[in-house]
Design a protein around this nucleic acid. Structure first.
Lengths: 124, 124
DNA sequence: CAGGCACATTTAACGTGTTAATTTAAACGA
DNA sequence: TCGTTTAAATTAACACGTTAAATGTGCCTG
């Protein structure tokens, strides 16, 4: 993450906030639970992040009309614009990293770790 | 860490505090910088942890008589006793984990990760 | 249909990671 | 020797992980 943090700092988002935005750019309009899981963030953290991003006008939080317990989170136009600006920079940093390490090596390592986690997972 | 946290909670130490105590049990009387590095903790965190552990009487912080900028950190007798009680429990949990995963697999994975970190390390 | 249970989210409290600024002491140079 | 620079720790500020408690809503049984 050290490679990415300077860029994130430039745009005043944290690592986790950026992860939330990227997940929304793929599946816009998720409820808080699904969003937290896809972004690998705990529910209490997402709660704080939502307030920050909503205050900046990047997302919009509303209540699910079908199930009043759920929060629905959407990107605003400003949010989409933000992602369109930052994503290429992020992509370039990742590409450099991949170039140094090698795509295959990254994938192998991630597969091993995923397998390990699955074997040990007590729940889920 | 989920395997260890309940045990640590029982004894009212955090994961990082426990790491600091274990490093001290190996090399007692280190200065803050070396201790932080061996425990994989940043200096500001160690500063907070030291105060907490000193308040509980597990460690003793003094100033280096040779170089007045350095802090020297030692275990108290109470600190040694604490480690003698908790370490076996910690060891047992680790042994269970190793039994499920396999020692060789753990070592291979750690070697790969260490190698990766070394290749990418910008400094140190 | 009322009361209790289950679920989704939020709030609260505490500790740590991270960065920057501050403090204090050592080392260095004119 | 004095003033400047470097170095080690600490403090400060902010965000997240983690756990537990509190809110609010849906669901289900009696």
């Amino acid at each position: 993450m050290r490679r990415f943090r300077p860029m994130l700092l430039d745009h005043e988002v944290t690592e986790q906030q950026w992860r939330v935005l990227r997940v929304l750019s793929e599946f816009d309009g998720m409820d808080a639970g699904d969003l937290a899981e896809h972004a690998c963030i705990l529910a209490p953290s997402l709660s704080r992040i939502s307030k920050a991003l909503e205050a900046r006008g990047l997302i919009l939080v509303s209540r699910d009309p079908v199930d009043g317990r759920r929060s629905i989170i959407r990107l605003t136009q400003q949010g989409f614009d933000f992602i369109r600006v930052v994503a290429p920079i992020s992509g370039q940093i990742y590409a450099e990293l991949e170039g140094k390490v090698g795509r295959e090596r990254i994938e192998t390592l991630l597969d091993e770790l995923d397998a390990l986690i699955l074997e040990l997972a007590p729940e889920k």
